[in-house]
């Protein structure tokens, strides 16, 4: 009887497991010696969205959004960065990712010949900013990297102090690439958007920020989404396409 139950559970694992829905999984050899697993959602279009830091199983909805984007002709690459280094998904982990590794990932995407846009959310946005800056430092004459989309960026370097403007991680203000920021209307962070935009543009970036009304930060990762958040989550790929439109058309004023 016990063996039968074990068998059922064992078979159940295979039936009910949720493997990645990426159409292609490959690895990139990093200068640090690690192999980063890369999930690819291929598309024939000329745009490639490169996500940071991704990590399969650690973010809700990311694969369904990537699939939806690829069906609309936008290729999506999702490198599983943190798990490669066995790092937890916490802020302090991001500082441990080596610049050379980030540059290698971006350059691998550049080699496809497509227009590359980096995309990240929350504290992970610092990785995208660092990747853009360090890649540009190394490949100054290359033009493949076109911009960044930052979803609900959390870039404070320390706990907020009431009455004092926030300080940001060192990656802020280091890239010249155009930046699009999306922020929730129901988060105090929206009050810091102007200041953050100013700091981001210090490196030469053109920055545009949009507030999505009635949603909280990280809405697409929440376990208790309200009706608006549910709706916006289902439209997240659309929001990303709108952001790309802004970046492509240079509507940044």
């Amino acid at each position: 009887m016990l063996i039968t139950i074990k068998k059922i559970i064992f078979i159940g694992f295979f039936i009910l497991s949720t493997p990645s829905i990426a159409q292609k999984i490959t690895t990139i050899k990093m200068p640090s010696g690690e192999d980063i697993e890369l999930r690819i959602f291929p598309a024939k279009g000329n745009v490639l969205l490169l996500g940071f830091p991704c990590d399969f199983g650690k973010s809700k909805n990311e694969e369904s959004v990537a699939k939806s984007l690829s069906e609309d002709g936008l290729e999506v690459w999702m490198p599983d960065i943190l798990s490669t280094y066995m790092l937890p998904k916490v802020r302090s982990s991001y500082a441990k990712i080596k610049n050379e590794d980030l540059v290698r990932i971006v350059q691998k995407a550049i080699k496809t010949g497509k227009d590359i846009y980096l995309i990240a959310s929350g504290a992970g946005t610092q990785l995208a900013l660092r990747a853009a800056a360090k890649w540009h430092e190394k490949y100054q004459n290359s033009d493949g990297l076109k911009g960044l989309i930052l979803l609900f960026p959390r870039l404070n370097s320390a706990e907020p102090i009431p009455g004092v403007k926030p300080k940001y991680v060192s990656a802020v203000g280091t890239t010249k690439k155009p930046i699009m920021i999306l922020e929730g209307g129901r988060t105090p962070n929206k009050w810091g958007l102007k200041h953050l935009s100013m700091k981001l543009s210090a490196g030469g970036s053109k920055v545009i920020s949009k507030v999505i009304p009635d949603i909280r930060g990280y809405f697409f990762k929440r376990k208790d989404p309200n009706r608006t958040e549910d709706m916006v989550t289902s439209e997240l790929s659309g929001l990303i396409k709108v952001s790309l439109f802004y970046l492509q058309k240079g509507i940044l004023e």
Partner: peptide
């Protein structure tokens, strides 16, 4: 790195089915 990958796969492989069961 090979061991890292195995560990990663094991945990991800188990999470959802265990929760579902």
């Amino acid at each position: 790195n090979h061991q890292n990958a195995i560990f990663h796969q094991i945990t991800n492989f188990l999470k959802t089915p265990l929760a579902l069961l």
